[in-house]
Amino acid sequence: MAQQDDIAFVGEHRTITVEQGRFCVARCSCGWRGPARRARSLARTDAESHTTPPLA
């Protein structure tokens, strides 16, 4: 069974991490999906980068 960790909720973007075998993937409610990572911390960083607005 895949483990899910809630990461962030920003507006309509709700991101989670999903474990798939030896890898962890960040996913968002908008349909975005990050690359498969071996480290959960990197998947969480990917999710935070997706939900953080760029600096103007």
Rank of each mutant, 00 (worst) to 15 (best):
F23C: 07
P35G: 07
G34N: 01
D6S: 10
E19F: 04
A8L: 11
A8C: 13
M1G: 15
V18F: 01
R27Y: 07
V25R: 03
R44K: 15
R40V: 15
A8K: 08
R37E: 13
R44M: 14
R40W: 12
C30D: 06
A26Y: 01
I16N: 04
R33T: 14
S41P: 00
G21V: 02
A26T: 01
E19G: 10
G21H: 06
D46L: 12
G34D: 06
R22I: 06
R27F: 04
G21W: 10
E19M: 08
T51D: 08
P54I: 02
R14W: 11
G34T: 00
A26S: 12
A26V: 03
P54F: 06
A2G: 07
G11V: 03
D5M: 10
Q20Y: 09
A47L: 03
A43M: 05
V18Y: 04
T15M: 06
E12N: 13
W32S: 00
V10F: 09
E48S: 08
D46E: 15
T15I: 10
C28K: 00
H50Y: 12
T45V: 11
C28Y: 02
V25C: 04
A39D: 15
R44V: 15
D46M: 09
F9A: 13
Q20I: 14
T17W: 02
A2S: 14
H13L: 14
P53R: 01
C30K: 00
H13P: 00
Q3Y: 11
T52M: 08
F9V: 14
D6K: 11
Q3D: 13
R33P: 00
M1A: 09
W32P: 11
R14S: 09
A8G: 07
R37S: 08
C28H: 02
I7D: 03
T52V: 01
I16C: 08
T52L: 04
A2E: 12
W32D: 08
D6R: 13
T17P: 05
A36M: 11
A36G: 04
A36R: 06
W32V: 03
E12T: 13
C30E: 06
V25H: 05
V18T: 05
C28S: 01
P53A: 01
A43R: 02
I16E: 12
R44I: 15
T15V: 15
L42N: 12
E12S: 14
A36P: 05
V25G: 01
A2F: 09
T17H: 03
V18K: 05
S41A: 15
P35F: 03
Q20A: 05
G34C: 03
G31P: 10
W32C: 00
A2H: 12
R22A: 13
P54A: 05
A26G: 05
C30M: 03
R40I: 08
Q20R: 14
W32K: 01
G34A: 02
T15Q: 00
Q3I: 10
H13D: 12
Q20K: 15
P53H: 02
I7R: 02
A36D: 07
P35C: 04
L42G: 02
G31Y: 09
E48K: 15
A26W: 09
E19P: 00
Q20G: 05
M1I: 07
S41C: 07
